[in-house]
């Protein structure tokens, strides 16, 4: 399953985000995009040393600055369930057609190349997750 699929499914779920600089943010995911930029609400920020804490109403975090995200364990099964259900629905809708593209839906999705540049303008060349 694609990491971005997991992230999209995590909307409104609580999560922990650690940034490259070691700061952590605990909050609920509001939104995310293909660069893994995210917006969180009701956020508890902790500094890298773990001794200072702040509360934020909401914040926006650049994907390129994220080290990792911790999400609820139940999310994995929930997403797999949904993908299976979608696949079953697709299969029955298409009848008995052998559909290579459909079967690759579980992994391939839309993203063949890099970060799903859907013909938009060059977004400043950032957000590739390559260095800061």
């Amino acid at each position: 399953m694609l990491p971005l699929s997991l992230l999209n499914a995590a909307q409104n779920k609580p999560m922990l985000v650690e940034l490259k600089n070691g700061e952590t943010f605990n909050g609920h995911l509001v939104n995310c995009d293909n660069f893994m930029n995210i917006t969180l609400r009701e956020v508890y920020q902790t500094n890298a040393d773990g001794d200072k804490f702040w509360k934020l109403k909401e914040c926006y975090i650049r994907g390129s600055t994220i080290k990792y995200l911790r999400v609820p364990d139940t999310l994995l099964d929930a997403v797999k369930e949904e993908q299976n259900r979608a696949r079953e629905a697709g299969r029955s809708a298409r009848g008995a057609h052998v559909s290579g593209a459909g079967n690759r839906g579980g992994r391939g999705m839309l993203q063949r190349g890099r970060g799903a540049m859907r013909g938009g303008p060059i977004r400043g060349g950032r957000g590739r997750g390559r260095g800061m």
Binding site: Y44, F53, K55, L56, E58, C59, Y60, T65, G124, G125
Partner: peptide, 21 residues
């Protein structure tokens, strides 16, 4: 410059607190 921004949040609703965990 946008490319160097890592985090953005409103100052309203931003406060230092004791360990919430």
């Amino acid at each position: 410059r946008g490319p160097t921004i890592t985090l953005l949040s409103p100052v309203d609703g931003f406060e230092e607190i004791a360990n919430p965990f």
